[in-house]
Design a protein around this nucleic acid. Structure first.
Lengths: 245, 245
DNA sequence: CGTTTACTTGAATGCTCTCAACCAGCGTGG
DNA sequence: CCACGCTGGTTGAGAGCATTCAAGTAAACG
């Protein structure tokens, strides 16, 4: 099955999977579903009976704040298990919505339970992928707490580039990023206006271009330095960056 | 063994443990160690061969930024498995140090491996505890991105109160919090000066008192409202808050 | 095309930071 | 037993980053 391949590709980046494990993953996928841009795929406060694997498109996890603003706490790319944690965390403490049109595959929690009962290695890999999500959270925390606006933007672009490269969704130094500046601002914890000006500055420095949902990195080293980007937190065995850029 | 009891107490808060599982946990602890305040317990970039369980004292996970500042990304209280993630995440992407004198217990990664191989339920509980760490990260992200300085402080105090209540380290509306304002500022992503002024404001509003390493919550409802604190993200089955306050 | 959505830009306000002292508690040593 | 030095906490003031409000432009869509 082609859909599972994406997940297999991502998990294998950390540790090779056996034939049986690949088989199990394929069979765990119940069905796929299309979701329109801006629609919720997992509701805040719900208690899902399955976890969803993002097959195509971009998704975001978000939390609302009483004053009407929201904070995006994670951006997901194809191959990500967007709510694997809902398997054990009974109630969703945040919502997940489609930033662009998405295709997702559903994995019933019973299947995940079976995996944890009988396939320790696969279980550890799934666990690992939630740990990497947490590592990404930590980097975002550092960004919001201690990095300048432009460094934060640069860091996110570096991160997305590498994560997309893993699933071969980069094209040289370019990649699609079909999200609005407002969504970016909500991810980085800053205002839309300030984000817009900071992006302009980075563009003027010749670090990257960004138009019509596509980003082109013009000066990877410059961007990386500004962001103090070190991809080790993404736990990729191969230096994806070095091999693709 | 008394040390494992603390962990058992915490894990049982989510799902009851069998006798055998308790037994396994007890036997997994290799030895205990004392760590002086301000000393590292896990070094940034290291590849630990064991995970450490915090038995007493407060610890923090931190990352350094090039300009010399640091960001604390997690505060740990007794009963927390401070680096359970190091079991699967090969290299530490951050350091962990003792905010106060600490006692820790070491759990060799081989023991954890054995648990994942033979005890699925226990494995899921350990996995869950790392998921809750991630949920806490998300709340911190919301705080730094979208909450005011005082709401952020209030939220952290609410969170710590509840987490300490779980391990019965609260005394009525009081609890020990042996950390400096500088550490708090590094946790909340703000400057020491601003933190200090914001704390004063909250004190003046009669929400809490804080002196000589001890906090007393004077107005729980006021604090909770200001923080928009909702403890569901901590995944506690019992309403620890309601029963103890 | 008209309308909506996304992006830009200007200007004023203000939150938060840095720099700079100063104060208080505490442990140590003369 | 008190002075001294250290750490942690407090306060003042000016600078600057970031926000909000407000408009205006450009691109996308039916």
């Amino acid at each position: 099955m082609e859909i599972a391949d994406l997940l297999v590709k991502k998990l294998s980046h950390r540790s090779p999977l056996t034939i049986v494990e690949r088989e199990i993953l394929s069979r765990s996928i119940a069905r796929t579903r299309k979701i329109a841009a801006d629609d919720d795929m997992v509701a805040e406060g719900s208690k899902p009976a399955h976890s969803t694997l993002l097959v195509s498109g971009f998704a975001a996890r978000y939390l609302h704040v009483a004053d009407g603003s929201r904070q995006i706490v994670a951006i997901h790319v194809p191959g990500d298990f967007v709510d694997l944690h809902s398997f054990l965390l009974k109630r969703m403490d945040h919502g997940i919505y489609a930033m662009s049109p998405c295709t997702v595959a559903m994995v019933p929690h019973e299947r995940l339970l079976e995996i944890t009962e009988g396939f320790p290695h696969l279980t550890r890999l799934l666990w690992l992928s939630t740990l990497i999500d947490a590592a990404i959270h930590r980097q975002w925390l550092v960004g919001m707490g201690r990095r300048s606006a432009s460094a934060r933007i640069a860091h996110l672009l570096c991160e997305l580039y590498v994560r997309l490269a893993v699933v071969e969704l980069t094209d040289g130094s370019q990649f699609a990023l079909p999200i609005t500046q407002e969504e970016l601002a909500d991810s980085l914890g800053m205002s839309l206006v300030h984000l817009n000006r900071s992006i302009r500055e980075l563009k003027n420095q010749g670090l990257f271009e960004w138009q019509r949902g596509g980003v082109e990195i013009k000066d990877w080293d410059g961007l990386r330095q500004l962001a103090e980007f070190d991809p080790t937190y993404l736990n990729l065995e191969a230096d994806v960056v070095r091999t693709t850029l």
